[in-house]
Simulated assay, not measured.
Amino acid sequence: MNSPEAEAFNRWQKKDFQQVEHEAASDWRSMLTNLNLPEVGRRMRALGITPQTCRSVKDASGLAKGLVHSRHEPEDQIALLFSFVNIPHHLQGNIIDRWSKAGFPPLAVHAPYAAHVLMVEIFFQIALAANLISTERASNRVDIAYLFYLPFCHVFVSGDKLHKLCAPEFLTKQQDFVWAPDLKSDLARMNREMLAASEVEREAGLHNLAPRPLGDDSNLTVALWNRHAPGSPKSKEVALPMSPEAERKLVEHLQSFTKAPTAPDVASVPSDDLDSISIERLVPAKKGSWWLIPKEIAKSESGKRD
């Protein structure tokens, strides 16, 4: 029995979405777009945020970062957070009490992700008031929300001009912003180079044909791989060859996990109490011109299912 999350993930891979999920997505986008951007701009300008006091997105992000790293006015900070992310009223007292018992440390220390969300929201409103972001484009409200995901990624790729302007202000030194047209161009370069391979080489599977991006550090994808991917060319590890018999036994061992019986209530058991967890992902054997797994293995597995 799969957990509810695993079941949902499997459905989403098949583009099978339930009505409740469509409604949740619709409500979320509606909440984002209902913000009256011109009114927000007027409100912030009334607080003294103008093009003269805030001349760049760096100035705007500096003001926002200063707020969540400050120990001053914690009540105002948490009130803003409650307002922006619609925290249910019955939860607010416990949240405030927990923060109070901790001695009201800076929000960025006490609740880093909540602080990040608040920082992005404050930045957006300051930038609107300072005319750094247009109040005439309603989609800016939805687009800025993508910056909420930044703490969870190594590389943020976008072809949106608003992201290109704002995202770098919230990235750490370990993260990169990549302009989508640049990445697409470099991926097209690699595709052209790999198409020169023989049919036999291509049928061996993409991971065998190109286990790492083709090119050198002057190529965008290679540079990103060397900076962020484990086992990059700079790694000192050397892959040891594995015999066909050893590979077969390893595959059988891994497959045994998916065939093992599970308790009917496994979804309610804390993951720390389980000996093992098996999560299956659907991977197409071939996509476009490329075999994602060796053609021979794909055909063999297909024959077993038939």
Rank of each mutant, 00 (worst) to 15 (best):
N2H: 11
P211Q: 05
G303M: 15
A115R: 01
S302N: 09
P168H: 10
N208Q: 14
P213R: 04
F84W: 11
I49E: 00
V68Y: 02
E193K: 13
S271I: 09
Q125T: 06
K184G: 10
K286F: 04
A246T: 15
N2R: 08
S139K: 13
H163T: 04
W291N: 01
K58Y: 04
W291L: 02
H154W: 09
N219F: 10
L165K: 13
N140S: 10
L147H: 03
S271G: 07
P270Q: 04
P213E: 06
D16F: 01
E73P: 03
D160S: 08
H22G: 11
K65S: 11
V222C: 14
L63W: 09
V40P: 03
V222T: 10
K65R: 15
A285R: 00
E121L: 04
M190E: 15
A60S: 02
A298I: 02
K286D: 02
D59T: 00
C166E: 02
V238C: 06
A180C: 07
P151C: 03
S218M: 05
L274I: 11
H72W: 10
K286P: 03
G62D: 01
K173R: 14
P181K: 13
V57C: 03
R137G: 03
F9V: 14
S139R: 12
D16N: 08
T135F: 05
P213G: 03
G215P: 07
L292M: 02
V120N: 08
Y113A: 05
R248E: 15
P51M: 06
P106K: 07
S61C: 01
A24Q: 12
A267D: 05
D176M: 11
E301R: 07
N34M: 14
Q92G: 10
W291D: 02
A180E: 09
R227A: 07
R43G: 01
S185I: 07
A239W: 12
D59I: 00
H154N: 14
Q174D: 15
A64Y: 01
Q19T: 11
Q92R: 15
Q19R: 12
S26V: 03
F123K: 03
V178M: 01
L128A: 04
N94E: 15
Q174P: 08
F177P: 01
S61G: 04
V117W: 08
E199I: 15
L147Y: 01
F257Y: 07
A115Y: 03
K295F: 00
A263S: 13
F123T: 02
P51R: 05
E75H: 12
I293E: 00
L254E: 14
V68L: 04
E121Y: 05
P151Y: 01
K287T: 14
L206H: 00
E247I: 06
A285V: 06
R281F: 14
E301N: 06
K184A: 13
G93H: 10
R305N: 11
P294F: 02
L150H: 04
P112F: 04
A145R: 09
L67C: 05
A263R: 11
S83D: 08
E169Q: 13
V269W: 13
I49S: 02
Q92W: 06
P270A: 02
V266I: 10
A127L: 08
Q174W: 10
A127Y: 05
H22E: 12
A25F: 08
